[in-house]
Simulated scan of single mutants.
Amino acid sequence: MRLVSVDTDGTEQPGAVVAAPDGTDRLLDLAGIAGGLSLAQLLADDTALAAARLAVSGADAATLPRLDDVRLAPPVRPRTILCLGYNYRGHIEGHNEGLVEGDQGGDAAPYPNVFIKTANTIGGPNDPVVMPAAATDVDYEGEIAVVIGRTARNVAEADAMAFVAGYTLFNDVSDRGWQNRSSQWALGKSVDGFGPLGPWIVTTDELPNLGGLQMEVERGGVVTVRASTDAMVYGVAFLVHYLSQVITLQPGDIISTGTPARSVQEQSVHLPLADGETVTIRVTGLGELTTTFVRTDER
């Protein structure tokens, strides 16, 4: 299933995306099935989730409202946002000098490079990213986020996938100036709204794992990243196992699995994002997430 959160006058309720015969995406309201549950809570409730699947299978998509006509909220509002740095072979610290596009070389680090973003960063899939005056070196990173579906604490790697609800797209927006002011990245990664998420969660019954997916990232219509998820260094099951040893993961929390290396041409000249620019993340089976960046003079 593809599951979304819909913002109706400030109230967020779960829904499902159903393809209509004309090829358009339609919205199936799951508020009645959820009974007041958020999407994260629905994902953790086996009975409600089964009812949602049944409703989707019986839906007459042609009679449903168009998804484009509703306002989407972030599919979940995570308590914890854990992100991976340098988790694709060929993406190494130091901006990958000298690499050719698609290079899979380099030794894996002995442990994942994990950093945090804070909850204030999360934005809806159609919300613009507002770049405040203090953020002068804004950058983007297209990533796949793992959505946790049930409480995970000290989970064995062999059991870890049972704790994953599904996957969504995430733009790990950063301000490189703030990021490079110290050895800890939190301030540069945690500017308000610097984490567009969505548009939907694809559940693991539809997409059991991330193997063999193709990712593209476009900046202003130019492809700057093209890679396969097969280049990931650390996979989903290991990450859930590894992180749950020290942090109890709750339903709706996300683990963002890192960004592949950019093309050599894109790496050669670093240009901060400017007012009005767009970035699109596109992954096989997960759809696409397009974000517009806007500049404000407010501090």
Rank of each mutant, 00 (worst) to 15 (best):
L72K: 03
A73W: 03
V76S: 01
V76Q: 01
R77D: 11
P78T: 07
T80M: 09
I81G: 03
L84K: 11
L84A: 09
G85M: 04
Y88I: 07
R89H: 10
R89M: 13
G90P: 07
I92M: 14
I92D: 14
I92Q: 15
E93A: 13
H95Y: 06
E97P: 14
G105Q: 13
A108W: 15
A109F: 15
A109I: 00
A109M: 12
A109T: 11
P112H: 12
P112A: 02
N113K: 14
V114N: 09
F115P: 00
K117W: 01
T118V: 11
A119Y: 06
N120Y: 07
T121I: 08
I122L: 07
I122E: 00
G123H: 15
P125W: 14
N126A: 15
P128W: 05
V129D: 08
P132F: 04
T136C: 13
D137G: 12
V138D: 02
V138N: 07
D139T: 00
D139W: 02
D139M: 00
Y140K: 01
G142W: 01
E143C: 03
I144Y: 00
A145Y: 06
V146Q: 07
V147E: 00
I148C: 04
G149M: 10
R150I: 05
R150A: 11
A152L: 15
N154I: 10
V155N: 09
A156Q: 10
A160E: 02
A160H: 06
M161F: 15
A162P: 09
A162C: 01
F163D: 03
V164K: 07
A165G: 04
G166M: 02
G166F: 15
Y167A: 02
Y167N: 01
D172P: 14
V173D: 03
S174K: 05
D175A: 02
G177E: 07
G177Q: 05
W178D: 08
W178A: 12
Q179G: 04
Q179W: 00
S182C: 06
S182T: 04
S182M: 03
Q184R: 00
W185R: 08
A186K: 14
G188W: 04
S190K: 09
S190R: 08
S190A: 05
V191A: 10
